[in-house]
Design a binder for these strands. Structure first.
Lengths: 149, 149
DNA sequence: CTACGATCTAGACCTCGGTCTAGGTCAAGA
DNA sequence: TCTTGACCTAGACCGAGGTCTAGATCGTAG
């Protein structure tokens, strides 16, 4: 636990990324430049490396592919002057995520409606009746599916 | 475009799933029982198969793994009597998706804040100043990262 | 009847994002 | 000094979810 630099194990704890994954990310060019090394060749991460990795975690957590993170890292590592491109990358991702969120929300609603129907009938013990005659919309599919099973 | 059954190509169009994927899903046990066949051995899908596949698409679109869909399909194919288990599966998925949505939303907010900061400075042409002295929180990371590149 | 496009099966191959192994080196405490 | 646990590299391997190929058959329009 030195004051200025962290070992890969310490960074692993702080970021939640496995040791293997940290090395993998570095190989993939996700870090800003190259990580520092001890005289003996072991990685010594700075506080900034850790912050960056935490940002990477956020990117990953909303589905940004490693290739995009690499691209962003390259832009940042290249220094001032390409803010426009960074912004564009972020915006593009933002749009993609928004669309995905909308999609998921919509589909989740359908699934919840289905669950609600099941719940009502399971609770009232009338589930069996769902399959005897005309079937309600949301379960029609599963009901009819049993036509010839 | 026969009245009662569809070829794999027609189903591919209607579901957006590739022909290869449709066969793959069947191999993986995602369909309810087995798809009908023509006398010559070609698949003939029913309207219910198509509806089911569309439901599968919804499941997939909110991240349900194929193994869960297979499990659900097995329950449905087994007929009435297991509504409780179907419900449980749906609820579990629902919870997982809600958590994921919350996570994504939170992380997206951070990314948007970052983008906003970039946007302000790119628009006002003061981006360069971000790197000259003390740096604002959200960009500190990228700024400092250029310390020794 | 023939042609030609659509399907068939089995199985190889692919991308993504890790994860682990083998064989060796580093570093800190007793 | 010795030991022990953390670390190193190169490269194999994994699981999820497809995607494609080869070589053969189906089925329909002409």
């Amino acid at each position: 636990m030195s004051d200025e630099s962290l070992t890969i194990g310490e960074v692993s704890e702080r970021t939640g990324l496995g040791i293997h994954t940290l090395r993998y990310y570095e190989r993939q060019g996700l870090l800003l430049g190259s990580v520092g090394r001890s005289s003996g060749g072991q990685r010594r991460y700075s506080a900034f490396d850790v912050e960056w990795l935490q940002l990477c975690n956020r990117f990953r957590a909303c589905g940004m592919p490693l290739s995009d993170i690499r691209r962003y890292a390259e832009l940042v590592a290249a220094g001032p002057g390409n803010e426009q491109q960074r912004l564009e990358l972020l915006r593009t991702h933002e749009i993609r995520v928004r669309a995905e969120l909308a999609q998921m929300t919509e589909n989740l609603a359908v699934i919840e409606a289905k669950a609600r129907l099941y719940a009502e009938h399971v609770e009232s013990g009338t589930a069996g009746t769902l399959w005897t005659g005309q079937t309600p919309t949301c379960l029609a599919l599963e009901a009819m599916a049993n036509r010839d099973s």
